[in-house]
Design a protein around this nucleic acid. Structure first.
Lengths: 150, 150
DNA sequence: GAAGATTGAGTGGTCAATCTTC
DNA sequence: GAAGATTGACCACTCAATCTTC
């Protein structure tokens, strides 16, 4: 006789609940701090950071979407907003006329640098100061398991 | 000489990145499935579930906010939307005339029950089928550590 | 026709201001 | 004045439709 499986086991439910809450607490704190100090949500910080970490400080829209796991339209909207702030510019792709490239500006690099400390502070305060290095590693490895195979 | 601490250690950055991604993947899947099958986002499912788990199928706005860790205004907006769907009704609180109570309707209970299976399926598929019971427990305990002390 | 990207409408959320009752 | 709750403006994201180039 198979179990009904309409609901999750109670402790699994609690586990997901905690996961949800933990993420939400940190993400909310990051959003508030970055919004207050730098006028950007955490998602936009990640866009700037992704560009900064790429060789030319520039990425094609699709690649940006891929590395951040954003939808194409989300990237398009984000870049539009960041362009309005003067932190990013769109450029034509040389090899494919369909392609658009988002490039970090000087101002964008500055904004990213100014935002970085507050973000790191929050992450330490809410996550990595509360976990031993071993626990942090374990958390990373568990999430890696969940993510691997996308 | 103290370390600069403007950025996070590289492996901590990667850990948070994975945590973020893992959560986002699951939450997106839950949202899509619930939206498609039941016309509600996962956040609204949680509201209905919180009401259903309470003694009378009803909670004061503030308590609802507390258990879900939502802001007051988020609760107000959510309940308005759920009321429009006919899944919840507002009632006056008897003991405090400032108080408002959100009460689950019959229709709301039905919607919750119909949504529950798809949600449980997704959570199993993306989380609990990919983790051993021991791993799931470890994840829960790590998140508990992050959450405790709010 | 498929791939890269944008657009606009609709929705869920935040924040600050407000209203009422304690 | 503080607490409970709502409101409205604004913002980020989703989804479906569209446009252009491969």
């Amino acid at each position: 006789m198979a179990k009904p499986h309409f609901r999750l086991a109670h402790d699994y439910e609690a586990t997901w609940e905690r996961f949800n809450l933990a993420f939400q607490l940190v993400e909310t704190a990051l959003d508030q701090r970055l919004q207050r100090e730098s006028g950007m949500p955490h998602a936009y910080y990640r866009v700037l950071a992704a560009l900064a970490e790429s060789p030319r400080g520039a990425l094609r829209m699709g690649d940006l979407a891929g590395t951040l796991h954003f939808s194409q339209s989300r990237v398009a909207h984000s870049v539009t907003a960041l362009e309005r702030k003067g932190w990013v510019v769109r450029e034509q792709c040389a090899t494919d006329r369909r392609g658009q490239i988002a490039a970090l500006t000087e101002g964008g690099r500055g904004a990213l640098d100014r935002a970085a400390k507050g973000r790191a502070d929050e992450l330490r305060r809410l996550v990595f100061d509360r976990l031993s290095p071993k626990q942090a590693a374990r958390l990373g490895s568990l999430c890696e398991t969940l993510v691997s195979g996308l």
